[in-house]
Design a protein around this nucleic acid. Sequence first.
DNA 1: ACCTGAACACCGTTCAAGT
DNA 2: ACCTGAACACCGTTCAAGT
Lengths: 192, 192
Amino acid sequence: MPRVTDDHRRARRDEIARAALRCLERTGIHQTSISDIVEESGLSTGAIYSNFPNKREIMRYIVSDYLFPRLDEIGWPGGVRQPREVLELMLQGFTEDGLPPRIIIQFWAEASLDAELHDDMARTVARLRDTLMRRLLPWARTRATSDTAATALAREHAVALNAIAQGYIAHTAVFGPRDPLEYIESIAAVVA
Amino acid sequence: MPRVTDDHRRARRDEIARAALRCLERTGIHQTSISDIVEESGLSTGAIYSNFPNKREIMRYIVSDYLFPRLDEIGWPGGVRQPREVLELMLQGFTEDGLPPRIIIQFWAEASLDAELHDDMARTVARLRDTLMRRLLPWARTRATSDTAATALAREHAVALNAIAQGYIAHTAVFGPRDPLEYIESIAAVVA
DNA sequence: ACCTGAACACCGTTCAAGT
DNA sequence: ACCTGAACACCGTTCAAGT
């Protein structure tokens, strides 16, 4: 019995979150009002508030489940791949499949002010890092003598990949789209 | 005669902007209300609104004049400096003298939604880039055959330095303070 | 000319009433 | 149990009245 109710509840929450996301893509977090979400979803104010306690919890739900939806579904090639190549695939994956950078940077701004939203973001980013780690592991094994060392190396590089991706997203959010390969090349030239 | 009035006006606007900035550091752009700024500045609502047409224009004023206040006042060493070293000094300068990354990322989020604020931001970043360019020029001259080529090279690298600094600020805004040198080293290891 | 602060319109949230 | 939508409190902005 709880099964049916839970499924229904989740479906409703997804319906609301997706409507909210369509509003966010148009106007951002703070310019999106509850009544915009009411209109976009076709539900009533009360329907929103009987599924989420407040607007902030809708945003937390989005950060946890919708912010970087498909990174583990990128068509990753198998085999040994250099970190640089994994980075290139990741940035191309964001460009093609992710939410607009404009939205992501707004959630970062929120996360820097709200401890719980920050923790949701940290968990989401940790999932991303683990996906990257798995892709880096074959390469890391060619560089390390033990399995433990390989895991540590892959993890370190996955963290750095996340950091560069964050820089790329922030950059394109503010200054517009940019070719990922050219971006990577330009920062490589500077830190070399 | 207009001189005195203009100076007075500018002083008042600075007074308001600084009070607003103190509020922003505590609670962010959207959680800072006009009445917070009224309280923090000791002025009245009407005094705010007779110096700025609305809250957004206070934010534009901050982006133009207060966001990266001291980058050209960093104690830059003279002589030929590698891009990597200029990058290190820049990130250290941000860490020591700039506004908290938490605030800067909020203005980026705003700039990605508001065309005029975006243009203010672009001008501010262009000033930063020109400062960096001047610091890179001695190095660029050792690498280029003409003055024109040196200028172009310095400019290219200055743009990349800005991009990396933006990544660093976004990263520290969300994930907390991090040693600039270690950050640079970790991304260098990946794009190498 | 600049400032005061009460009044207005709008948004997030609540809650009595419905199914 | 979930939903409706009018009502409430608060925030950005305006404006008649003051200096």
